[in-house]
């Protein structure tokens, strides 16, 4: 039951190298966001700024309504998350604790939407949002994202691990479904709900494809869309500003991840796909 020492060390080297490739860009961005543009071109390899400055952040705040843009991003992410968690929780409860006809088919139908390419629903959804007069509005971004198949899947998995006898006893005691949901099931699946919620929030915060179709004016932009403006101007002359915007875009997701990583990794690893 021994692992060859050389094999182990080789793999540690490979893992470390991969971690560096994945994480280095993030650290690099933070360093560059505090570097004056001239220095960025002269000392490309310096991660730690020689002449730290806030000018990149100031430029960003001067050229865009940053607070508004951050609020837009926050509103979209929070509203979408609350609805997705709620609809997923209710659907999961129905799938786990009821035996109605067509249950399997419905479950399969909802979960299979994970595999539908985005472009298949893109034009009609754009038309719906446009007909409702919600183009260029955060609500147009939110509207098609009120339910989520991955959420239903993960919360269903988590509920299935609750012993069914617990629910049966509660039913025999004439406890209504509302009470069972609130007092028994919810506390037991709370870790799963927390991490699924964080996952939704962050995915929605980072979302690009759908908002880029719906939002047209800069003051209605979300952070990823604002960030894109600094690269579209070919040549990357605003490179250090783009780094500052990147830092502002990633800070919330990073903090959430670093705070809740045990929960999140736990949910993704324990519910598994079996």
């Amino acid at each position: 039951m021994k692992i060859n020492r050389t094999v182990e060390i080789t793999w540690h080297v490979i893992f470390m190298a991969t971690v560096i490739v994945l994480v280095f860009p993030i650290i690099y961005a933070v360093g560059m966001s505090f570097t004056p543009l001239e220095d960025a071109y002269n000392n490309v390899l310096n991660i730690i700024p020689l002449h730290p400055t806030l000018e990149n952040y100031i430029t960003f705040f001067d050229t865009l309504p940053v607070v508004k843009v951050t609020m837009n991003t926050f509103i979209i992410a929070s509203v979408a998350t609350v609805f997705k968690v709620l609809t997923s929780f209710l659907a999961a409860y129905a799938f786990v604790y009821f035996q109605f006809k067509g249950k399997e088919v419905l479950y399969f139908l909802l979960i299979s939407t994970i595999f539908i390419p985005f472009t298949v629903t893109m034009i009609p959804n754009y038309l719906i949002v446009s007909d409702l007069g919600l183009l260029d509005s955060v609500w147009g971004v939110i509207l098609p994202q009120l339910a989520d198949a991955i959420g239903i899947f993960l919360i269903t998995q988590s509920m299935r691990s609750i012993p069914i006898s617990l629910i049966e006893v509660a039913r025999l005691d004439n406890l209504g479904h509302g009470r069972i949901m609130k007092d028994i099931v919810l506390p037991l699946v709370r870790p799963a709900i927390t991490s699924v919620g964080i996952w939704f929030f962050i995915s929605s915060w980072n979302e690009f494809v759908w908002p880029v179709l719906i939002l047209k004016t800069t003051e209605n932009y979300t952070l990823p869309l604002a960030l894109q403006m600094y690269i579209s101007s070919e040549g990357g002359t605003n490179f250090t500003v783009a780094m500052a915007v990147s830092v502002i875009t990633m800070i919330i997701p990073l903090l959430l991840y670093l705070t809740f990583q045990k929960y999140i990794i736990g949910t993704f690893t324990s519910s598994g796909i079996k």
Binding site: I26, N206, P224, L227, Q228, S246, P253, Y257, I264, I265
Partner: peptide, 17 residues
Amino acid sequence: SALFLPAFISLVVGSIL
């Protein structure tokens, strides 16, 4: 934790970086 981390960051950030 480290390998999972970029999954939480915007791909626009990744593209620019």
